[in-house]
Design a binder for these strands. Structure first.
Lengths: 354, 354
DNA sequence: AGGCGGTGAGTAACCAGTTTCTAACACCGC
DNA sequence: GCGGTGTTAGAAACTGGTTACTCACCGCCT
């Protein structure tokens, strides 16, 4: 599959060669410490520290001398030492179930931008959809940072409540847990489904098929509940998943269900089913209408372009930062915010046949 | 756009309320330190440290007592203190130009998986395509980690060479810099273009249009050079970009160029142009053939499915970890590896008309 | 002239671990 | 009974910063 041309150095199991820069303790090479600068400038370590942190109570001339010395020696303060002394890391953490999911990618982006702008580093961890792992990772990530943004659609409410003080300050996204004091940013799934259903029934659709998301997903549960609650619908629920291939594989089941409209758990399964249906020579939206969820960038480039609900994904990341920042400053950070999705009618839905 | 229902607590500019847990220095709440455990177990800090790190030279019974005390007090060693004492962070960093790009997302994923498996944290930074920013971020990220994976398609060779010792150990991805001792993982763009051209000319295409990627991108330059080097081609280069919309917008220019086949810089512009062409009622592949690059997950779900070259994207992340790990252990890490892409012929290419 | 307030810089005590060095003790052979 | 050896565990010295406290010095006011 891949030919590695010039590659060579492969796994010298253990290279006990003596060339390891003198194995004596933790030495980040010959980097200068604050003491070095202090000595070079002929002042105390305290003064160097003050200068480096822009304290005003240092004589300008002395400050200049210190800065010159620091410059000359190419001094950069040890991050580790600062962390220890200050008790903060300058880092925030994001834990998500799956980095392949465009939803979480958007949050990652929004957060990365916002945190970057504020000069904070971002730690990212991925749990592979394992709720237990998620919680463990969250704790671990939190210990390496000053605050946490947690997307954990699967972990039980109870568990999150129990761990909440170990995780604080933190913000929950795509999820809301009753009785948790952490702010949460979530999507109003019921409202979104309401809009989709209104749109479809308005075009005469009664028999709907729902391509269900992963079992255990909080978002899926809410969407399903909202569909079930909608009156006058003949609903078939088809187990599906969250990826392209899941949707693609469900095309046959959709046809067999006899539904005139398909509500996809998300845009990916909707795109998948679009392709699957075309291969079965089912016309969209002529024979069957299809809707998605999320409005991923790709949704407008499917054939036909996907009718879906748009959620402010990267806004979520930016907002998460906002809240977290407030929390880290001892402010309130607000409580629960539900974002209202917006229906985007594109080419994949049309009037019901007959 | 979004109505925040239950939100309230908004920007109390400064909350000098007295409830801040006693403002006296860096206090991570009332967490126990190693001294607390030592006292509780009636041993010295050194012994607790030894037990926590699994040193064998502690009497089993004593070790058990220490562990019990640690357990009871819910002790977790301070990450910051360990970092300082050990001189390593347990973290690796990834710097990419753009987290919205599927290519970098895949690397992120592969790296995240591999690093996670090895119990390492992952720091992520994004430069927004600004080469100078990229370099600064890389240095900053590196100072907070033990090693770096750098995707920097734009930064000048010279600059990277100059900074190389400040960044080491590090691995370069999607990029190769002559005279740099860091291992690099890159794509054999020339070979990939070769396969695409062979496929297209084999179907009778002579007049090609290339949808060029962002100017300054190393990958784009290589692909363009390879196209120019191919004999017997009538090539039109159309400035385009790297996103869906760029491709979509280029559809008109493609038609005007009179080309019978379009080579897209990547799958996104190819998908975009696919949609654009359909709207102009140009048949693909009947009138025009289209090829992409990268094989993003979406490529098989376009209409028609996109002919493209597949590159082992997440393999790149995993490999990057492998190399970096070797480097961090003082081993060689290998030199340059060029991955050979594989042509995937799908529905978007066909015989040239006439 | 003496007392006083304010300022700038140094001393030393932190932060919370790890690790070297050393002392105490048990066990062994002579 | 004594010296040699090996194992444990503690004391103390690190890691590299920050900062509370202290003190010397200066000008000002009475």
């Amino acid at each position: 599959m891949r030919a590695s041309a010039e590659d060579d150095g492969q796994d010298h199991a253990a290279p006990p060669s003596g060339g390891r820069t003198g194995r004596r303790g933790p030495r980040p090479a010959g980097s200068v410490t604050i003491s070095g600068v202090a000595a070079a400038a002929g002042v105390s370590r305290a003064t160097v520290s003050r200068v480096m942190n822009g304290s005003t109570s240092v004589h300008p001339e002395l400050a200049a001398r210190v800065r010159a010395a620091a410059e000359r020696l190419d001094y950069a303060p040890s991050v580790a030492a600062r962390r220890l002394a200050l008790g903060r890391t300058g880092t925030i953490a994001l834990v998500v179930p799956d980095l392949a999911n465009p939803l979480f990618q958007s949050v990652l982006r929004g957060l990365s931008q916002a945190a970057g702008k504020a000069g904070r580093q971002l730690l990212v961890a991925e749990s592979n959809e394992d709720p237990e792992e998620e919680v463990v990772l969250a704790i671990e990530a939190r210990r390496n940072s000053d605050g946490l943004v947690l997307a954990s659609p699967r972990a039980p409410d109870e568990r999150l409540r129990a761990l909440s003080d170990r995780l604080a300050p933190f913000v929950l996204v795509y999820r809301q847990v009753p009785g948790l004091e952490a702010p949460s940013l979530s999507i109003d799934n019921a409202a979104a489904i309401g809009e989709i259903v209104a749109h479809l029934t308005g075009s005469g659709h009664r028999r709907l098929a729902y391509l269900a998301g992963p079992p255990g997903s909080a978002g899926n549960a809410e969407r399903l509940a909202a569909l079930r609650a909608a009156p006058g619908l003949d609903l078939t629920v088809l187990p599906c998943g969250s990826m392209f291939d899941d949707g693609y594989a469900a095309a046959g089941a959709v046809v067999r269900s006899g539904a005139s409209a398909v509500v996809g758990f998300n845009d990916m399964v909707a795109s998948g089913v679009l392709t699957g249906l075309r291969e079965l020579e089912v016309e969209v939206p002529g024979d069957v209408s299809v809707t998605g969820f999320d409005d991923i960038p790709f949704a407008r480039y499917t054939t036909p372009p996907l009718t879906t609900v748009s959620i402010p994904k990267s806004e979520l990341g930016a907002q998460a930062w906002e809240r977290l920042w407030a929390l880290m400053n001892g402010e309130s950070g607000g409580y629960n915010v539900r974002f209202q999705p917006r229906l985007l009618v594109r080419g994949s839905t049309g009037p019901a046949r007959s």
